[in-house]
Amino acid sequence: MTVTFSASSLDQLMPMHLLVGPDFRIRRAGPSIQKICGERDLIGQPFTRVFDLRRPRSVDALFAAEQKDATRLHLALHHEPDTPLKGQVVQLQGGRILINLSFGISVVEAVARFGLTIEDFAVTDLAIEMLYLVEANAAVTAELRQMNQRLQGAKIAAQEQAFTDTLTGLKNRRAMEHVLGRLIGSGREFALMHLDLDYFKRVNDTLGHAAGDHVLQRVAEILVSCSRKTDTIVRFGGDEFVLVFDGLTDTKRLEALARRLIGKLEEPMTFAGRSCRISGSIGITLSRFYETPQIDAMLHDADMALYESKNRGRACVSWAMGQGQETLQRTG
């Protein structure tokens, strides 16, 4: 069957078509392909002078394809090598070929570069839908990016206000203040134990910070394993820890607990095949030593007791007697 239609119908259906004669010269060009070539009139030009044929490489191959057979082709304008075009070629009577071109994925750049409008595309061409999608997608992505930035800011703020020490998973100082405030406010009795690691600096200096971090995490595990769910274990900073024992004020039991802790800390820990040895010094105070317990005073007294332990040669447990008493009861 042969279908005949006018040149203007061809222009509408395929605004990017080329009709090439057996002499390889362009006989007709669709309005859009003519538009992207600018001032230069395509009619009569040798095909290969205008286009850089990339697939197939030779223009002969375009004409060699069997009748009815359609061949894919890739090409670019010589003066616009960065805008690749793709197309299809069919054989016509009289040794002529009809090529229909499209921008493919390069359509986004092409509309900007050549100032194309909706009318430059065939109605059935999905180029406009694609441009629409690209733009809609960019708008949505921009909106999401902004939202992510806002969420990122909120996340940082939330982390700053969080109650957890990120390295060890223990409570942090802010959490400790809440817990102590609540215990004091409700008039409950409790023990406050201040632990400072011994020889930790040596691990950090000789084996590096990764080893140090590993030790701190291991210490956290030991502290958790030696305490009850109702107790609060705090990484107070660096290699200092505070343990709050709710309702536990028996000095003998606390003393034994402190010694067991030190014993566990002294067991060698291995990091990357190397042995890390630490110990701990402890100072303890009790809420009942104070008429009106105050967080700062209790922390200060436990800290003083801790330094007493350090002065006594480390790995010791010392007691603060509270109420600003200078004397420290020495045990062990």
Binding site: A112, G115, I128
Partner: peptide, 10 residues
């Protein structure tokens, strides 16, 4: 009337 200009390119 003239309306507003619309270019396909952003």
């Amino acid at each position: 009337s003239e309306g507003r200009q619309f270019d396909l390119a952003v």
